[in-house]
């Protein structure tokens, strides 16, 4: 098991290095000189040179890359061109919105999807299954930002149950914060829940067709006992894969949803970075998002090994 984790850790590190190289190349090498790019064509050479100094963009490319990576490791994400403040501070503020939103959505989607998928598989072909499959068929076709707009239309503009957007900050208390994140989280979670429920159902149906389920039934387990004691854990293996992928979808989705609800999260920060040509912000935030996805995938792989002994100690 230790060996397995160490191996995965190694590949985690490698992925992070390659990802950082790709991002650095796209942001700092392809556009030519980032300082010129940020200031536009009308800037004087002196102004560009001054900016370069401020942003730490002097020196050769390899040196700049190493400088950036070393900074990342030390928690220094560079200096924002527009705000002239450390990016790390900006990110820290925004993460307080984006992370709870993603987690909220992930919890909602899992809590809805797994029971629905199990129910549909156990009642295969009957009314509950047909209903769940029909609803999820729609669920995966609905763009989350449009769903978000419909939610706002109904629950904020018509019924006035929940706020239409904005975020009061956690200082205002837990409840107002959660209220503000509820519609965004639902908008993010439901389309993902539809996918997850379908995966759970088909994984469970596949597992129920396996020989060892018949063996369990021959021992005297009822169909329900066989599902609970033998099928669910095996079916979780493909479900985990999707759950890992969903994190990256939710993260990306959150970027858009934050725009619908005017939430001051990482997504808004990125868009501001793009419109203001603030490459340092874009580069660091993208790296952060990608790192989050890679770390989650690593966690998923370790979780696999906890579920599946064949990975833990191969024969």
């Amino acid at each position: 098991m230790l060996r397995f984790v160490l191996l995965r850790l190694g590949s985690l590190g490698l992925s992070l290095v390659v990802a950082s190289l790709v991002i650095f190349t796209v942001v700092q090498v392809i556009p030519g000189d980032p300082a010129t790019f940020m200031m536009g064509l009308n800037a004087t050479p002196e102004a560009v040179e001054a900016l370069r100094k401020v942003l730490g963009l002097t020196g050769s490319l390899p040196w700049r890359y190493l400088h950036w990576v070393a900074g990342l490791l030390a928690g220094d994400l560079g200096t924002s061109y527009t705000y002239r403040v450390p990016v790390a501070g900006l990110v820290l503020e925004r993460v307080q919105v984006s992370l709870p939103l993603t987690a909220y959505a992930l919890v909602l989607s899992t809590a809805l999807a797994l029971p629905a998928g199990v129910l549909a598989a156990a009642r295969r072909g009957r009314a509950a299954d047909v209903t769940i499959m029909g609803v999820t068929q729609f669920g995966i076709a609905v763009p989350n930002f449009w769903f978000a707009m419909l939610l706002v239309l109904l629950f904020a503009l018509r019924l006035h149950w929940l706020p239409a957007g904005g975020f009061p900050g956690w200082k205002a208390g837990l409840w107002p914060g959660l209220r503000a994140l509820t519609l965004p989280a639902v908008a993010l979670a439901l389309p993902q829940a539809a996918i997850l429920a379908r995966v759970m159902r088909s994984a469970l149906i596949d597992t129920l067709g396996q020989d060892f389920i018949r063996t369990a039934r021959a021992k005297g387990l009822s169909q329900g006992q066989a599902v609970r004691r033998h099928a669910v854990r095996n079916a979780l293996i493909p479900v985990l894969t999707i759950l890992g992928l969903q994190f990256s979808f939710l993260l990306a989705g959150a970027i858009i949803i934050e725009n619908v609800f005017y939430l001051p999260g990482l997504g808004r920060l990125i868009f501001q970075g793009i419109t203001q040509r603030d490459l340092i912000v874009v580069q660091s935030v993208v790296m952060l998002l990608v790192a989050a996805v890679i770390v989650v995938n690593f966690t998923v792989e370790v979780a696999y090994a906890l579920i599946d002994p064949r990975l833990r100690h191969p024969a």
Binding site: A19, I255, I274, V290, V293
Partner: peptide, 19 residues
């Protein structure tokens, strides 16, 4: 392939449009 999957597609789009 794994590496591309680590970039959410929207993030790739953002990176490309940023440049």
């Amino acid at each position: 392939g794994d590496l591309v999957f680590a970039f959410p597609s929207l993030v790739i789009a953002i990176l490309i449009t940023a440049v």
